[in-house]
Simulated scan of single mutants.
Amino acid sequence: MAFFGLRAWPTPIVKPLWPFFIASGLTFYLVNKVQDMAVRSESTPDYAKDPRNPYAVQISKEHAAH
């Protein structure tokens, strides 16, 4: 007998979806790394010195140390 649409046996949720969990974690990690590299890039020095850039202080300290 179905009680609110629930069955007597458990419906597998994690087992068939594990590749999507792994792929989403990998995608999140890689997009985060690319975004961090783009923010700290030296190819756009105007943006590196822009006061609206939240990483401007860190970038200027890193470039001063080199």
Rank of each mutant, 00 (worst) to 15 (best):
M1K: 10
M1S: 12
A2G: 01
A2P: 00
A2D: 02
F3D: 01
F4L: 04
F4T: 03
G5T: 00
R7G: 11
A8Y: 05
A8M: 12
A8P: 03
W9A: 15
P10R: 08
P10T: 06
T11R: 00
T11I: 05
P12Y: 05
P12A: 10
I13K: 09
V14R: 15
K15V: 11
P16S: 11
P16I: 07
P16Y: 08
L17W: 13
L17I: 12
W18A: 13
W18S: 15
P19A: 13
F20I: 10
F20V: 10
F21Q: 03
F21P: 00
F21H: 06
F21D: 01
I22M: 06
I22K: 02
I22L: 10
A23R: 03
S24V: 10
L26S: 12
L26F: 11
T27H: 07
T27S: 11
T27E: 03
T27D: 08
F28V: 04
F28R: 04
Y29M: 13
Y29D: 11
L30K: 02
L30V: 05
V31C: 14
V31N: 12
N32S: 15
K33A: 15
K33R: 15
V34H: 03
V34L: 03
V34A: 07
Q35M: 08
Q35Y: 07
Q35I: 03
D36K: 09
D36I: 09
M37D: 04
A38M: 14
A38D: 10
V39W: 00
R40Y: 06
S41W: 00
S41Y: 00
S41H: 00
E42Y: 01
E42S: 01
S43N: 09
S43H: 02
S43E: 06
T44G: 01
P45T: 02
D46V: 01
D46A: 02
D46G: 06
D46W: 00
D46I: 02
Y47A: 10
Y47R: 11
Y47C: 11
K49M: 12
K49I: 09
D50R: 01
P51D: 02
N53H: 02
N53F: 06
N53E: 01
P54A: 08
P54H: 05
Y55R: 14
Y55W: 15
Y55S: 13
A56T: 14
A56N: 14
Q58H: 14
Q58W: 11
I59S: 00
S60C: 06
S60K: 09
S60E: 07
K61E: 05
E62A: 13
E62G: 07
H63T: 04
A64N: 12
A64I: 07
A65S: 14
A65T: 10
A65L: 12
A65M: 11
